[in-house]
């Protein structure tokens, strides 16, 4: 488990990085936190001949509020998303989901853009981005383009990014006042690899009625999955035991899980239902509607 040789560049600006991407094309891979890419390189399952290290581009690491959006640079560390007051205020779902990503030492190095670009189907941030309706700003030789989260994740480890593109910015809509967020996930044991998770942000009116529901499941398909049926069942309802049970059960029809060595497809489906129920109960408890 030693990496194959590669050529290494450490650009200091985004522009320089994009120019290197254009120059080296499909041979090149941008290196963000490296927490997913470097294991593959060590195992020689990935053998890029050029690595473009983004860790020396300070301009790619930022967090700011802008026109009702929480805007993150691709190199913003996951640990910062977890601890930032800006994030907690603007998008509490992100702050709630982050502690579930890897471990603190992984989040110290792992980045927002890295996790989203890697597109592991069971990763937390892609699920959160999908639930929140985030926008991905891709940059490449032809400039920038905006890809909605719904069109960003294609399949396992495959996104809408072209080989010469990289994720340059992520824009998360700020949570409306009165909304509540929760995240839950389950693995085959405690503290290890997550298998299935659900991210939820529910807008509630003053009567505690759901005016808008946004849920996405991770690990229950080849990409993160929006739980549209759950959302439909919930909208207009007060979150209480019966409505939650019905809404969570509806998730079973939204997901298309695959079997792998960790779990059967059936279990992943039931786990998605269970996690949907768990997040909705947590929100109901917080809102006092249950």
């Amino acid at each position: 488990m030693k990496p194959a040789p590669f050529e290494y560049f450490a650009p200091e600006t985004a522009e320089e990085a994009l120019a290197l991407m254009a120059e080296h094309g499909v041979e090149a891979r941008p290196l963000a936190g490296g927490q997913s890419l470097v294991p593959l390189i060590n195992m020689r399952m990935a053998q890029p001949s050029v690595l473009i290290d983004l860790n020396r581009c300070p301009e790619l690491a930022y967090l700011r509020g802008e026109d009702g959006m929480l805007v993150s640079g691709p190199m913003t560390r996951q640990r910062e998303l977890e601890l930032s007051e800006t994030v907690r205020a603007a998008c509490p779902l992100i702050a709630k989901a982050m502690p579930y990503m890897g471990h603190a030492t992984i989040r110290n190095r792992g980045t927002a853009g890295g996790s989203l670009s890697h597109a592991d189907p069971s990763a937390e941030l892609p699920g959160v981005a999908l639930a929140l309706g985030a926008e991905m700003i891709a940059g490449g030789p032809n400039g920038r383009r905006t890809v909605p989260a719904t069109e960003f994740f294609f399949a396992e480890l495959t996104t809408a990014l072209e080989p010469d593109e990289m994720l340059c910015e992520i824009r998360f809509p700020e949570a409306p006042a009165g909304s509540r967020a929760a995240f839950a996930e389950v693995g085959s044991h405690f503290g290890g690899l997550a298998l299935v998770g659900v991210a939820a942000q529910i807008d509630l009116d003053s009567a505690g009625r759901c005016t808008k529901a946004a849920l996405a499941a991770t690990g229950a398909g080849e990409r993160p999955t929006r739980l549209s049926s759950t959302e439909a069942v919930l909208t207009g309802e007060v979150l209480e035991k019966q409505s939650i049970a019905e809404a969570a059960e509806a998730a079973a029809g939204d997901v298309e899980p695959l079997e792998d060595l960790h779990a059967t497809a059936h279990w992943r489906r039931r786990a998605a239902v269970a996690m949907a129920a768990r997040v909705l109960h947590e929100i109901a408890d917080e809102a006092g509607t249950r």
């Binding site: 990496p3 470097v38 110290n108 190095r109």
Partner: peptide, 13 residues
Amino acid sequence: GVSVRSCLTFAVQ
């Protein structure tokens, strides 16, 4: 100043 996995970092970094 922060803990990291040194097996997931290249020396040049």
